[in-house]
Structures are given as C-alpha cells and as structure tokens.
Design a protein around this nucleic acid. Structure first.
Lengths: 189, 189
DNA sequence: AATGTAGGCCAACATCCGTTGACAGTCCAG
DNA sequence: CTGGACTGTCAACGGATGTTGGCCTACATT
C-alpha cells in the first residue's frame, strides 16, 4: 500500500485504537462499547465511525498484528518445541492486548473463531508438516500443539489463574517445550 | 434440600433450562438473549423472569452441574494422567452444553472466570497436592495441568478446530495422559 | 359449584446500543 | 483573502434488551 501523507488526526486515530485494544481485551466484543472506547480516547463516538467505519472495522484494525511466522526451513527438528513456545510467548508479550482480544472474542464470535483458526492453519500446520514423521498426521499433531499453546494463553492471559500467571517465562518454556516436541515429533502412541 | 412437590410447570421449567443451555453454549452470555431462549422453549420471555428471577439467575441454574470430583486417595500415582484425561472427557461429553457455556462465558464474564477458577482449585489442586513430589510446587503443576485440559476443551468443543474435533477419545487420552502425568509427577525440569 | 392460586400471555417501560446527519471551528492551498 | 477540505461536537434515530405489572385462563381444593 502507498505511504499516506501524515494527517492532523493521526493522534486521534491512534488514541482510538489504543483505547479499543484495551477495551476489547478486557471486556470482549459485546461489552466493549463504542461509547466507552470513545470516552477513554476523550473524543466523540461519531469519530470512531468516521475513522473506522463501524465497530467491526475497528475490531479488524485492532487484530491487525504482525505474527512474524517462523520459517519452517530454519527450524531444527530437535528443538522445534522450545522454539515454538518461546516464539509464542514473545509474540503474546509484545501484543498482549491485541492477542488477548482476539482469543476473548474468538470464543464468542464465529468470525473471530475462524480468524484464529486461520492463524493456526498458517502458523502451526506448516511447522507440523515440516517436522512430523508422517505427513498424514500433521493436522492432528498441529491441533494438539494448538491446544496446549492456546490453553496456556487462556489460563495465563485471559483467565489469569494465579499459579499460571505467576510462572516465569523460562519455567513455561521448560515445561511446555517437551510437550510440543512430543506432539510434533514423537511416534504415534 | 427437601423434595419439592411436583409442579404443573415443571415441564416449562426444564424446557427453559434446556433452551438456555443450548443458547448460552453456542452464543455466549451477551448474545444469548432471554427473548431467543423463550422463543426456543415456546413460552413468553416473562416466564423466564418468573422462574429464574433474572438472566443471571438463569445462567447460574445452567452452570449447576455435578462434577463428581475423583477422590484423590483412590488415585494411583502411576496412572493419574490417564485417569484425569479420561475423567474430564467423560465429564465434558455428558455435560457438553453446560460446560461449553461455562468456558465460553468465563472468557468474557469475570464472575464466570472466578467460578471456573474455583472449580479447578477444588478439582485439580487437591489431586496435585496428593501426587506431586514437592507440595510447594502443587499450584504450579495444577495450573499447567489446567492449561492443557482447558486448551483441549477450548480447541475441541468451543473453537471446534477440525483436526482436534475429529480426534477419537482414545487418541486424546493417549496423547494427553503422558503430558499430565509429567506435569503432575515428573521432577521439576 | 365457588373460590383461590398458579400458569401463561400481552403490552409496555426504561435503558442502552450502533449509527447518522447537521453544524461549527481550523487549517491550508490558491 | 477566500474557498474548500479536514477535525471535531451535538443531538437524535431506530432497534434491541432486560425487566415489570396487569390480565385472562385452568386447575385443585373445599
């Protein structure tokens, strides 16, 4: 896309987006009202409509994060588990609000669910195809991997179970890496 | 509680409850409107209020499921992983709508999240305390276990990722049992 | 048969939501 | 200096939602 000239309203745009990220992340799609977001951003609700078209357009803008999918070719088959856990933890810490919002909304909104499914189809499935023994098992193995990764995200960042939220990053890597390694590369039990 | 005499309205009550379970499970708390639930049950919205007091009261009634927590004393330390996976799969299959509703709502509604947290505190934590090597590590180990169990429930029953939803029950047990076994009993990595 | 009570429906209320359009100030190009 | 585009506010609309109270009917008890 072409570089757009800087506009006088850019500050307002980003203020809206920041407020929307927080509201969607903490309240979910339905409870995050445009009026509340506008109040947080200290502007009128109608501005949200002008700049993002609709509530759904605003939500789309919130979800527009760069996932920096790791290139499967660069993965070592021996360390794929650790690499994946580490990648996703970093990703989540850097885009906490946006990803929490996506997970929170996906659980209620079918469109969000499809989006999340697309992400994992594009992220984990290629990795599974590249490292797992039998290509036919790749979808199942990718699914198991997703279940553990999303389960960690759910309990740590959304539900905030105290013992899980309190875990140090290295501890999570140490515990989950062998799990993902087994799901992706161990022989079918 | 004392046995209440059967009432002429019992059929209506259960019809409302059944419709509510389905709606809450498939739409979440906000989108499951009392009007829609009443329409499914073929009665007037005001009846819901009469019998369950409010939308929240109705939701509470939906969540009132018997979890049949396994007695930690009867668990074999060697097979606790398999026992747990099997228990939760059965539980979820028998109360699919109610548990899906709880998970779906917990992600948006703080009260639901607390309820879910309470369940895992009462279900998994005692088990962890009983089987894990160092009692101090019990909360963290229980949390990791919860992350995998809830992650499976999320991807299989809520998001319905095709490869995960297609897995056979025995396959899930075979894949997850070693994971839980390690989270609960293996030495700290 | 008379009467009280519980079951059920209907219409309405108050509130909140996303969204729209008219209007006023501000900046910049000509 | 002037016109037009941009930024922002205000008030309102149409619709949906949870909830309430009044009213009619049917049953059970006396």
């Amino acid at each position: 896309m072409p570089d757009r000239p800087p506009r006088r309203s850019d500050a307002t745009r980003t203020a809206i987006l920041a407020a929307a990220r927080e509201r969607f992340a903490s309240d979910g799609y339905e409870r995050a009202t445009i009026r509340a977001i506008a109040k947080d951003a200290r502007i009128d609700p109608s501005m949200v409509m002008r700049y993002y078209g609709s509530k759904e357009g605003l939500f789309d803008a919130v979800l527009d994060v760069d996932l920096r999918i790791p290139n499967p070719r660069e993965l070592q088959r021996q360390t794929v588990g650790e690499t994946l856990v580490s990648h996703f933890l970093t990703l989540w810490e850097e885009n906490n609000d946006a990803l929490t919002a996506m997970l929170r909304v996906s659980v209620t909104n079918p469109a969000g669910a499809e989006r999340l499914q697309g992400i994992f189809r594009d992220q984990i499935l290629p990795v599974a195809r590249h490292v797992c023994p039998d290509p036919e098992q790749a979808p199942a193995r990718a699914g198991l991997t997703a279940s553990q990764v999303l389960g960690m995200a759910l309990t740590r960042y959304v539900l905030k179970f105290p013992p899980v939220a309190a875990l140090a990053r290295e501890e999570i890597v140490a515990w989950l890496a062998p799990t993902l390694q087994r799901y992706l590369t161990a022989p079918h039990p």
